[in-house]
Amino acid sequence: MILAIETSCDDTCAAVVTRDGEIRSNIISSQGVHARFGGVVPEIASRQHLTLLQPVIDQALDTAGVSLEQITLVAATRGPGLVAALLVGFSAAKALAAARRLPFAAVDHLHGHLAASFLKPTELEPPFLALIASGGHTLLADVRDHGPQPALLGQTLDDAAGEAFDKGARLLGLGYPGGAALERLAREGDAEAFEFPTGARMGGLDFSFAGLKTALLYRVRELGEQQTELCRADLAASYQRAIVESLTLRVRRALRATSATRLAVGGGVAANGALRAALEQLGVELDIPARELCTDNAAMIASAARYTPALAFPDYLTLDVYASGERTLAA
């Protein structure tokens, strides 16, 4: 039985997963724990993780119906992320493992997103093409095995896809983060009303969303406040279409380049209905895990831990975390 902890960004997460990939519990702080443990969510970061981690771990064990004595491997996200946030979960996990002389697996967050597809009931088997699109990452990977070093085919050169949603929402006055609000508004709008750049002329498999963000800003300025208010749903729908087209265009190119017949999608943007609909048109087998496995969670970290070489006590005590930007999947 594996206990995994994930604190790379906003959410405090813990999960219990069996060695063969069955999820026994998957607790995410932003989804229910606050209600149970009270307390207002502070802005972000390490202090919140410190407060929430123990209750989240307790709940993960409770829900799974296991005690710490039944845990045989402890895992945690080592990076990439915000160092102070990562350290909370990583240090706690190491301490938990050390106290029981258990082995420890230091997991890469992006390997985790890919490994969400290895969990039951899907248990997708490599090879497949993977698209990870979240608030912090956007990449395409050629997944040939279960291990932590898939071939990176392309990644964003500026903003992540989820960030493009959130920043577009901000420009349309939907607050921040407002990716989900933008999607709701887009349902009432005409996606053909405005033309936004999809980076179609940019060859290769890398993504870029910075130009799109600026195009929306200029369009909003041109229209003026009153017109923008009237066209907000059309703007949202057209902007969303551009993000979705930009993503699917590169997925199509990658499918051609790798001859893959299966596509796995992860990251919070995988929950977007327009993206799902577009990917379903590609004519390949599509695997999109349940929403709580797409956004940041610890079950995916436990899953990745199954394919990450574990370190014996006390070899992991000196391990440190790594920040975003410092390291990425193999290019």
Partner: peptide
């Protein structure tokens, strides 16, 4: 890339 989501990147 943009550090908005993670707050910080280090290279």
């Amino acid at each position: 890339t943009s550090p908005t989501f993670t707050i910080g990147q280090r290279y």
